[in-house]
């Protein structure tokens, strides 16, 4: 079996297993798995009770990975996330400092309601997310691979929350908006969760397979012109360089270079999932919304006009597509 076929097969295997417990939300599940395959963290935004936590936990279960959940609250301290050295008495009667691992030391970390934590605590995640390591008391500790942070936040409750700083947001590979389930999905959810039989997720993939998936995804080739298209999407989000009127009017800042990296990586995976061996512009467009929506900053005018990031990104895609014309005009 070729790498690409294996990738697709593994991906669909995990997806199918998750579908046993997650009703609807196929897009969210798929994108979460893309984030996993891309070695990227995912920010899930949605109302409570939409299955965000269940999704993450189920994912950990079907991958046979360590899972930990951190419920962020305003009084939470960084040490509550990373762990801390505690003073312990050894059996021999001696006294010593012993490091007690925080919940960050897991393969899949669910950072629930991340925006409830203070910036100080939020920033405790920064190093872990980017460097895959934690430094405590001058000692740097490497996190186990694969390491995936799945953060959730509630878009409605703003009281007592702290918006994530741009640097923090930029470290998330995807930001996924969890939609309300349809009536049919809702009926299925009710049936499954109120009956006597509770579906169980079985491990269907190993840690090694996840790491291999990451490797395979990075080998998907991308043509210069396609890459150029992707970079045009990124550049078009910069208010001072963009030719898209909505960007000039409603954005404070555009995507960072990390956005470009994430865009191309995600597009590679989308290409493989589509059964192709090359990245297309369609893949880039498909990746644009989850990759860029948290990387662009709306200004006050946009807030006033109820303009969303998704709307701006759609305009950006249209603008870039308009410039990308067929070179043969016949």
């Amino acid at each position: 079996m070729s790498n690409a076929a294996w990738f697709q097969e593994t991906f669909s295997r995990i997806q199918s297993e998750l579908a046993k417990v997650i009703v609807g939300q196929e897009e969210i599940v798929r994108n979460v798995l893309v984030g996993l395959a891309a070695n990227g963290h995912v920010l899930l935004e949605g109302m409570p009770g939409l299955g965000k936590t269940l999704t993450v936990r189920s994912l950990a279960q079907c991958l046979s990975l360590n899972f930990s959940r951190i419920q962020f609250t305003p009084d939470m301290m960084p040490a509550d996330v990373t762990g801390t050295n505690i003073f312990v008495q050894t059996p021999e009667g001696g006294r010593n400092f012993e490091f007690r691992h925080g919940p960050i030391f897991a393969n899949i970390v669910l950072a629930d309601e991340i925006n409830r934590a203070t910036p100080k605590t939020q920033s405790a995640l920064l190093e872990a997310m980017q460097e895959r390591s934690v430094t405590i008391g001058g000692k740097r500790m490497q996190l186990d691979e694969p390491f995936l942070v799945m953060a959730t936040q509630n878009p409605i409750e703003q009281e007592g929350t702290y918006s994530l700083p741009e640097a923090q947001l930029d470290r998330f590979f995807f930001k996924l908006l969890v939609p309300d389930p349809t009536k049919a999905d809702l009926a299925e959810v009710v049936k499954r969760t109120t009956g006597t039989i509770e579906p169980q997720v079985q491990p269907v993939a190993t840690k090694e397979e996840i790491l291999r998936m990451r490797h395979v995804a990075r080998e998907v080739p991308i043509a210069e012109s396609v890459l150029d298209f992707g970079l045009n999407l990124i550049v078009a989000t910069r208010p001072n360089e963009s030719k898209v009127p909505a960007v000039q009017k409603y954005l404070r800042y555009g995507s960072s270079p990390r956005g470009a990296q994430c865009l191309v990586t995600a597009a590679r995976i989308f290409a493989l999932l589509d059964g192709r061996f090359n990245v297309s512009k369609e893949d880039l467009k498909q990746a644009s919304l989850p990759v860029l929506r948290h990387r662009i900053g709306l200004n006050f005018e946009a807030e006033a006009d109820s303009i969303t990031q998704d709307k701006i990104i759609s305009d950006v895609i249209l603008g870039v597509e308009r410039q990308d014309r067929d070179p043969i005009r016949v």
Binding site: E219, S225, R276, N278, V279
Partner: peptide, 14 residues
């Protein structure tokens, strides 16, 4: 879906 463009650019040993 950019197959042809990529095919022309991709290195033989990739």
């Amino acid at each position: 879906k950019d197959r042809l463009t990529t095919s022309r650019e991709v290195e033989a040993d990739s």
